[in-house]
Computed example of a mutant assay.
Amino acid sequence: MTKWLSHRMVERGIIKEEEQELYQFGIRNGMILLLNVVTALVIGLLTEQLAVVAVFTLSFMVLRSYTGGYHSDSRIFCYLGSNLVLLVPVYTQAVFCKTSLAWLLAVLLVSAGIIFLLSPMHSKNRKLDKEEQKHFGRKARL
């Protein structure tokens, strides 16, 4: 589908032929992102936890952009893994609602400390050079 779309864009003069591969990559990633957002929306609606899913998904997407971490070789495994991670706050939010504010703040501080100390993270599929480490590390800490 991405080849067809990029080919049509070349035919219509929207992009140059030498840019076709780059646009295929962008279209493919955009479609994957859209699929993940739609899946998150469906999970939120089915579990009646749309607010929890929305807050977690937005937070996770922003945080993940700057902190790095594991990158799967397989798109299917990435999709399934991402959605399994999404189920954690959906099914544990009731526990957090019953937890004291002191414990919640302690968990928040420990989590922030881990992010502060360990980000950005490399992976075998996404290596960061020194400049990227500095840039993403600064963004993650903010």
Rank of each mutant, 00 (worst) to 15 (best):
L35A: 14
E48P: 00
G113S: 05
A140D: 00
C78W: 03
S100F: 03
S123W: 08
Q24L: 06
K124T: 14
V53D: 00
A40E: 06
L108F: 15
V62H: 09
L86M: 14
K139A: 14
T67C: 13
S72G: 06
L35F: 11
V90A: 02
R138G: 02
I115R: 01
H71Y: 08
G68Q: 03
Y23E: 03
L45M: 14
R64W: 10
S59T: 11
R12T: 10
L5M: 12
K134T: 13
T47Q: 07
Y23M: 09
I76H: 03
L118T: 06
F116A: 13
L41Q: 05
V42W: 01
R64N: 11
Q133Y: 08
D129K: 11
F136L: 12
A102S: 05
H7Q: 15
A112D: 15
N29A: 15
V110L: 07
Y79E: 09
S6V: 02
L63I: 07
G26C: 11
Y91S: 08
V95K: 11
G68K: 09
I15A: 11
I115E: 07
Y66C: 13
L46T: 13
K139I: 08
L41R: 02
L5I: 15
G68W: 10
V85D: 00
V53H: 02
L45E: 06
S65V: 00
M9C: 06
T57Q: 09
V95E: 02
L108E: 00
V53C: 04
S74L: 10
Q24T: 10
Y23S: 02
E132V: 05
E18M: 01
R64L: 06
G69E: 06
E131S: 08
E18N: 08
A140V: 08
L33G: 13
T99A: 05
M31G: 00
A140T: 04
L118I: 03
S72M: 01
Q20L: 08
I114C: 11
A40D: 05
W4A: 01
R64F: 07
M9D: 04
A51C: 04
L87N: 04
L117K: 09
L128W: 02
R75S: 10
E18V: 02
G137T: 09
S100Y: 04
V88G: 12
H122W: 06
P89N: 07
L104H: 04
L50T: 03
S6W: 00
R12V: 01
C78K: 05
F77W: 15
I27K: 02
S59Q: 03
A112V: 14
A102R: 13
Y23V: 10
V95M: 14
A102F: 02
